[in-house]
Design a protein around this nucleic acid. Sequence first.
DNA 1: GCCCAGAAAGGTATTTATTCCTTTTTGAAC
DNA 2: GTTCAAAAAGGAATAAATACCTTTCTGGGC
Lengths: 212, 212
Amino acid sequence: MLSHEQIWIAIDGIAKRNGLSPSGLAKRAGLDPTTFNRSKRVAPDGRPRWPSTESLAKILEATGETLEAFVAAVAGKKGASSRDSQSIPLITLSAVQGDGFFSPEGAPVGNDWGEMLFPGPKHKKAFALQITSNELSPLYRRGDTIVVAPHQPLRKGDRVVVKARKQGPSVQLLERRTADGLDLKSPDTDMEMQHIKHCDIEWTGRIIWASQ
Amino acid sequence: MLSHEQIWIAIDGIAKRNGLSPSGLAKRAGLDPTTFNRSKRVAPDGRPRWPSTESLAKILEATGETLEAFVAAVAGKKGASSRDSQSIPLITLSAVQGDGFFSPEGAPVGNDWGEMLFPGPKHKKAFALQITSNELSPLYRRGDTIVVAPHQPLRKGDRVVVKARKQGPSVQLLERRTADGLDLKSPDTDMEMQHIKHCDIEWTGRIIWASQ
DNA sequence: GCCCAGAAAGGTATTTATTCCTTTTTGAAC
DNA sequence: GTTCAAAAAGGAATAAATACCTTTCTGGGC
């Protein structure tokens, strides 16, 4: 993964390793000296601003650094990307209907989580939920386990987990996205539709894998 | 160093490894589906066009790939992520209705198989089948991918792939096991039941994971 | 203290990537 | 063959990064 913070740390690091200031590095690469100004790393409205890929290619070219060295600079500083963990947090879907299992951002918290072997480097912060009833059949049945990646961009047709205000996380099918919220269909046999407004949604996740 | 050609090869590779087209990858990452069109990789005047770092960050986030894996793709190497995530053979379910895609034992053979990153628990000889129709909906839909472990002990309720004599592999629900064969239910809406004798079964596999 | 060069802030203009739209192509399903 | 959906091409509008410009800040040398 590649965060806004990481990439700017890496650029500062490359400059430093080559005995240059960020502005000196830009000049050396044939760019405008203000390209990497701290003042240009976030927009006036707070939106993060990213250097272009072409600028990155130019500073690698100018300093003779390899892409691997750049990546090491990205990973080496805080927020390293390579997680060595071979497993993800696991709990039952029924258990998390109570409070205290997720941070406000949808990350697992507390001591009640188990672990499930899921070795891929995929999807930092993914977690697994075990289905304990047949309410969601035929899609998911008692004993199935779903792997959820939180905060993924959602599209029509996606199978999602939605945590709405004052409700436990629930498994849903995303029927469509509207300006003010999501149209969701329950995967059970009834297929009831419901609309949830963005303001009532605490977090969402996409179901990326399901074990059978 | 980082060349224009390399970066586009890497993007194509990430898409392919995740069972997606370049346009599918863009959609998954929340970007416009045309973002990675070949027609947008060079300007009309021949000038090379580069994807933005923010777009790169988004496809890493969406696929769960590490920056290291991306760099390995840039460098043209394969399987840098194989330490954590294994690559398994991938093909469409419709394609394997013909002959010559499996050994008599149900192992993938031939040159038509692709590769896909599977982040889940390692499994010897597993392979992936991409669903290309909505026949099996709502359980599996067009675009879903199922991971099949061949020669697994089967139990009632399992979702299975059965290769019967003179038929292509088909997705079934195992209703019950009898002395002389298997009672299978098709997962489509009709839910037709059929009985297949052991002597007519070439091989079976259990569907261990499904992604959408 | 004063001067100076580099660095950085801040703003505007320009370039470039993305989005949005339509059309064409492709491949699988029926 | 026909139909359908996804992918891709191509073009115009929009959004975002860089270039360009001026001003302010910083540190060293005098």
